[in-house]
Computed example of a mutant assay.
Amino acid sequence: MKNLFVKGLMLGCMFLTLVSCNSNGANSNVTIDKEQIKKEIQERENEFAEIYNSGELKNIGYYAEDAVTFYPNMKPIRSIKERLEFLKLDEGSINNTRILFTTYEVFPSNDGNQVLEIGYYTVVDSTNTAINTGNYMSLFEKRDGKYVCLRDMSASDMPLD
């Protein structure tokens, strides 16, 4: 009887081990192409910069409606209205400057539906001289087949005045 109990216990442990090793279920066959995702995120950044630099801010589809942006020394931006007001007052809209974004790294979730991006921005004036540079982090989620920004934050690496 004791031998039967031990065999049952061992069989149960083996079964649990097999089940737990395959815990990804439906996601176990998903292949993530990090370079393709990085390319898609860089394309989103380029679209954002192009629209921002054109001054047609209402056409920015970069952010999700529920996005939150964290900029230094200000309260979080939580609505589309707040975002448009901020962007209208930002450097590019009033000083004839342009912004450029460079995606350095992406960290996709196991299914590729969310991506954390680490990047660098540069703001240049009309003579192409950098007047502001810094780093940023953005969290994207794929909605309707396109990545949209859910959260982002940035920090200038320029010295304080």
Rank of each mutant, 00 (worst) to 15 (best):
K2W: 07
N3Y: 09
L4Y: 10
L4R: 09
F5D: 11
V6F: 13
K7D: 04
K7M: 12
K7C: 12
G8V: 09
L9R: 00
M10W: 09
M10N: 06
L11M: 12
C13W: 05
M14G: 12
M14C: 15
F15V: 15
L16I: 08
L16M: 13
L18G: 15
L18E: 09
C21E: 09
C21S: 09
C21K: 02
N22R: 10
S23P: 03
N24M: 14
G25S: 07
G25Y: 00
A26Y: 11
A26P: 07
N27M: 08
N27S: 13
S28A: 13
N29S: 14
V30Q: 08
V30L: 14
T31I: 14
I32R: 01
D33A: 08
K38P: 07
E40V: 10
E40N: 13
I41G: 04
I41N: 01
Q42Y: 05
E43P: 03
E43K: 13
R44A: 14
E45H: 06
E45G: 11
E47H: 02
E47F: 01
A49P: 03
A49W: 00
A49Y: 00
E50V: 08
I51V: 15
I51K: 00
Y52Q: 01
N53Q: 07
N53L: 04
S54V: 05
E56D: 15
E56N: 15
K58V: 14
K58P: 04
N59Q: 14
N59I: 06
Y62G: 08
Y63W: 13
Y63T: 07
Y63D: 10
Y63F: 14
A64Y: 01
E65D: 15
D66A: 12
D66P: 00
A67N: 02
T69G: 08
T69H: 04
F70S: 05
Y71P: 02
N73H: 09
N73K: 06
M74K: 08
K75R: 08
P76D: 03
P76G: 02
P76K: 00
S79F: 01
I80S: 09
I80C: 04
E82N: 03
R83N: 11
R83Q: 10
L84W: 02
E85Q: 11
E85S: 10
E85H: 05
E85Y: 02
L87A: 07
L89P: 00
D90Q: 03
N95K: 11
N96H: 11
T97E: 07
T97I: 07
I99V: 15
F101E: 06
T103N: 10
Y104D: 15
V106W: 00
V106C: 06
N110C: 06
G112Y: 01
N113E: 12
L116P: 03
L116C: 12
L116W: 11
G119I: 03
Y120L: 05
Y120R: 03
Y121L: 05
T122C: 06
V123H: 01
V124E: 10
V124C: 04
S126G: 07
T127C: 05
A130E: 12
A130L: 05
I131D: 05
I131W: 06
N132I: 05
T133E: 15
T133W: 04
N135A: 13
Y136R: 00
E141V: 11
E141D: 08
D144Y: 03
D144K: 07
K146H: 14
C149I: 05
L150W: 03
R151D: 11
D152T: 10
M153A: 09
S156M: 07
S156C: 08
M158G: 06
M158P: 00
P159F: 08
P159R: 02
P159Y: 06
P159N: 08
D161K: 14
